[in-house]
Amino acid sequence: MNRWESDPILTVEHLTMRFGGLVAIDDLSFSVGRGDITAIIGPNGAGKTTVFNCVTGFYKPTEGRIAIALDKADAETLERLTAGGQRMSEDRNILLLDRMPDFEIARDARVARTFQNIRLFGGMTVLENLFVAQHNKLMLASNYTIGGIFGLSRYRKGQDDALGRARYWLEQIDLIDRADDPAADLPYGAQRRLEIARAMCTGPKLLCLDEPAAGLNPRESAELNTLLRFIRDEHGISVLLIEHDMGVVMEISDHIVVLDYGEKISDGAADFVRHDPKVIAAYLGVEDEEVETPAEQGASG
């Protein structure tokens, strides 16, 4: 059995998002396997980013349930929470994301995200960006500022820990030499990497990346693949990504969900999706028999 069926970290059920009369997502259900890299693909306007915004709480879904299981999927508890109108289980294992505001999803449900158009703190240095990501931990260490003002040892230790974590991720994304430069001064590819490192510094269980390879050259795309595999394999983080670059998607994804006009048209492993006639039709908008070969090239290149 696939991991997204046996032990999903994220389950999205009957998600519907309407903006006035426009149905952006219509009754969408899918799961993200624990420790998988899951890709959401689809033509422009298919509703991919809307799904992301619902999962991360930036939109409140019109209907549907979005649940995260931090340690272990547990259908029974999930049903109990849903019926009881609660947000999260007592042990903080199961959380209902559709009932939580965005910052609590990042803080308590441990879902980190990046943005399609990079949103770094441009006037702050690379290192400061990674410190802001550790805000909640540092806030606690500084006794909500009181201890920090007097420079208590607990805060100094917290700061050292934060520095260590930041240094670790800077080494992973190869930006340690530019730690004290303003984030806005970095080249585009480095900004993308920094945004991923910043999301990782929040200590997530699920990392949501909105088009991480957009604007990258082939070499940078390859580096991104390595980084994402590293995050999955070494840190056991589940990754959910939206991507147009099929080279990235096909190479690293364990599981692909294809959307078109707000509906799921295909769901499965890379090989399955690549040969699904519905996917080919959606991408090329013509009869599948005519274009079998070019479609494959398009999908793999």
Binding site: F58, D102, A106, F115, R119, F121, M124, H135, R198, A199
Partner: peptide, 14 residues
């Protein structure tokens, strides 16, 4: 300061 730079990014960081 992060709030001044980008409020949405702040919320995404919890």
């Amino acid at each position: 300061e992060a709030l001044r730079e980008d409020e949405i990014a702040c919320r995404s960081l919890g």
